[in-house]
């Protein structure tokens, strides 16, 4: 990369991040199709693309593009149309700063942990915009639930990440992953669990899909969306899984540490992230949706205290070892 002129390097990096942003969510989505199907004793898509339906999501994309883009008459047009992008772009930015290895990273930012957490929090604004602008009660309810959920789960998540950052003594994802040692798996285990649960909740994935709850409020904030804009919301969800899984791999699983990490480091990060994504899918298949009050209770009664305890434990560990 260093041999290129700066502007070309920027273009190359941007294109690479965009490519990853478009490919990885589809990969996760296809994995979800297949893993979920087999967990339910089905086969999942088998036709699109010929081999075990590998092109199902491409076909879905083509279908979404062909659909009519409807804006409800009473909708707040600009907010309604802008919302999918507000939901989607934060994850693109987050993906840009998550390192696959010390060298394979879209943009190496100093306080990348802070940037990622801040940017992910913006995503919910898109959901809120969509819910409010749709002029639909279900949409509004869904958006309110999404906002309440984000407020509740952002705190334990930040606390859990703060614990890792404290342990590594850095706010840079690259430095954290490099400071990681295998015994952190045990040391940071409570924090890791809190992070995973909170990440699921932020992504509004089952069992935390109260904001979508299609048996109660149709499809929450996305009820009125059709075609490509709806597809963007779905893409945002799967991009979110990619971002959260990679973040988990970098923060808690040591990222690129593994055999031949000089050459294959990026592969290890991707594999670990993929593993986490499979777990996310697994949880979705296995568990029922939580009720709104259970959801809030879990955050405030369990996750926040556990995250605080983890922070204290980390602090003790850091003081003892230094």
């Amino acid at each position: 990369m260093s041999g290129l002129p700066p502007w070309l390097e920027v273009v190359v990096r941007a294109v690479a991040v965009l490519a990853a942003f478009l490919v990885l969510p589809l990969l996760v989505g296809q994995t979800e199709h297949k893993v979920m199907a087999h967990m339910q004793g089905r086969l999942g898509p088998m036709y699109a693309g010929g081999f075990h339906g590998w092109a199902q999501l491409v076909a879905d994309g083509v279908k979404f593009v062909q659909k009519e883009d409807i804006t409800p008459a009473k909708a707040d047009r600009w907010a309604f149309r802008l919302a999918p992008f507000v939901a989607l772009i934060p994850y693109l930015m987050a993906l840009a700063v998550i390192p696959l290895s010390p060298t394979v990273v879209g943009a190496d930012v100093d306080a990348s942990v802070v940037l990622v957490l801040a940017v992910i929090g913006v995503g919910v604004i898109g959901t809120l915009m969509a819910g409010w602008a749709s002029a639909n009660k279900y949409s509004l309810l869904g958006a309110m639930r999404a906002a309440a959920q984000l407020v509740s789960y952002e705190l334990p998540m930040v606390l859990a990440v703060a614990s890792v950052a404290l342990a590594a003594g850095s706010l840079s994802l690259v430095s954290i992953a490099e400071a990681w040692k295998p015994w952190w798996l045990l040391w940071q285990l409570p924090g890791a669990i809190v992070f995973l649960v909170a990440a699921l909740a932020e992504l509004q994935r089952p069992p935390f899909d109260m904001p979508l709850a299609d048996s109660e409020i149709v499809f929450g904030a996305f009820t009125e969306y059709t075609g490509l804009r709806f597809a963007f919301f779905l893409l945002a969800e799967y991009a979110g899984i990619v971002v959260m899984s990679l973040l988990f791999a970098v923060l808690y699983l040591g990222g690129w540490s593994g055999p031949f990490e000089q050459w294959l480091g990026w592969l290890w990060t991707l594999l670990k992230g993929f593993l986490v994504a499979v777990v996310v899918i697994w949880l979705r298949v296995s568990w029922p949706r939580m009720r709104e009050d259970q959801l809030q209770r879990l955050a405030w009664v369990w996750l926040v205290p556990i995250a605080l305890l983890q922070l204290a434990l980390t602090a003790v560990g850091v003081v003892m070892t230094s």
Partner: peptide, 20 residues
């Protein structure tokens, strides 16, 4: 919850019931 995870993991390894 653990039972649920075990059930889905078990059926992941088994043959599907789909009639093609």
């Amino acid at each position: 919850l653990v039972k649920g995870l075990a059930t889905t993991a078990k059926s992941l390894t088994r043959h599907t019931h789909t009639a093609e």
